[in-house]
Design a protein around this nucleic acid. Structure first.
Lengths: 199, 199
DNA sequence: GTCTATAATGTGATAGAC
DNA sequence: GTCTATCACATTATAGAC
């Protein structure tokens, strides 16, 4: 179940995409050259243009594959009617964190390469981001929240906090599971102890 | 009270720094050329090198000025012994959001240009970021929090959510003040209504 | 302090052989 | 499908006049 529609086994499209994702995620789009990508898989720069007509088309292909994988991951979140809505949001958040943090170059490209910085395909990149983010929005909007809670900002806050983890996360510390669970609990419980008296 | 130590009034160092900050913030470091920066203030590319020996030295100067301004802003946060620690954190957060969102190109450069992407001065940029972030840490560490609260993750969560605002904030919607106040209240109060029964 | 002119390099991309 | 060879261009940076 690889990404390619009609696989021709004797080409190196997949390694090429992987290499591009890895370098775009680690260095950024503009900081990565066609030469670096191709030679990292022992391919010559000119050969890249058999697969993609330009560098930004290559980025777009990485983006598409990344969104496909993230949605696939998100779809695995169990959604039993019985389970607590907060638990579902936690599982969705953990899926998101996993996608970003678990050595997933494709996901990190989506989070770290800003559409604005690649004008030639900015619209397509934005559409792909939206496609994914609307999936997360649905989960959060289902939460039963106190009257007057700003759901919009809650969502942006949670997604922002999650996306920012890529800049400080280091393997060996807390796992994505632990980080997600703690973030949710920081929101569910009252952090202000005075609040407890008022209830 | 401008930034420069010994001002020589008849040069264009300040406009040059402003132009660099504006373009770096809007387009990114690699996406911005010396030509764009210089010609946007009617200066020729070669003249930039009278002021800075390289493009990354120019970035470093923008970073330094940005941190100086953000710390200056943070220092204006009133810190009366009497006031509630939560209120102080809120004011610090609002100062941070203001710096990012209020047309402040210098601050946005610090948030959006990643040290890793400019290897020549990566260490210096990281040190400048740390200098600023440690100031915010102190405010959050002073909060009285329930036993066992993960203060470390709370801080990263709040800073991450704040830093991410630059990617969705649009003038005309909620003000930085409102965003900061709402974020804090989402943390202080219990979002899970079941929590209220347990207290 | 700024300009003119240009060097030195790196980069995306192409044409055609195999 | 990949390689060889190379073009065309943009970019950082320098040298020296003014």
């Amino acid at each position: 179940m690889s990404h390619s529609k009609q696989r021709k086994s004797n080409n190196r499209l997949d390694p090429l995409l992987d290499a591009a994702a890895r370098l775009f995620a680690a260095q950024g789009y503009r900081e990565t050259t066609i030469r670096e990508i191709s030679t990292s898989i022992d391919m010559l720069p000119g050969s890249v243009y058999y697969h993609f007509s330009s560098k930004h088309e290559l980025l777009l292909a990485v983006y598409e594959e990344g969104v496909r994988r993230m949605l696939e991951r998100m779809d695995k979140v169990p959604d039993p009617e019985e389970s607590c809505p907060w638990k579902r949001v936690e599982l969705a958040l953990v899926a998101h964190l996993d996608a970003i943090l678990d050595h997933n170059d494709y996901a990190r490209v989506i989070i770290s390469v800003r559409p604005d910085n690649v004008p030639e395909v900015a619209d397509e990149l934005r559409a792909l981001r939206d496609k994914y983010e609307s999936r997360m929005r649905a989960q959060i909007d289902d939460l039963p929240l106190p009257e007057g809670t700003d759901r919009h900002l809650l969502r942006l806050m949670l997604i922002g906090a999650a996306n920012w983890t890529q800049f400080w996360y280091r393997p060996g510390g807390q796992t994505p599971q632990e980080i997600g669970a703690t973030m949710i609990s920081l929101l569910r419980q009252p952090l202000d102890e005075h609040y407890r008296d008022k209830l």
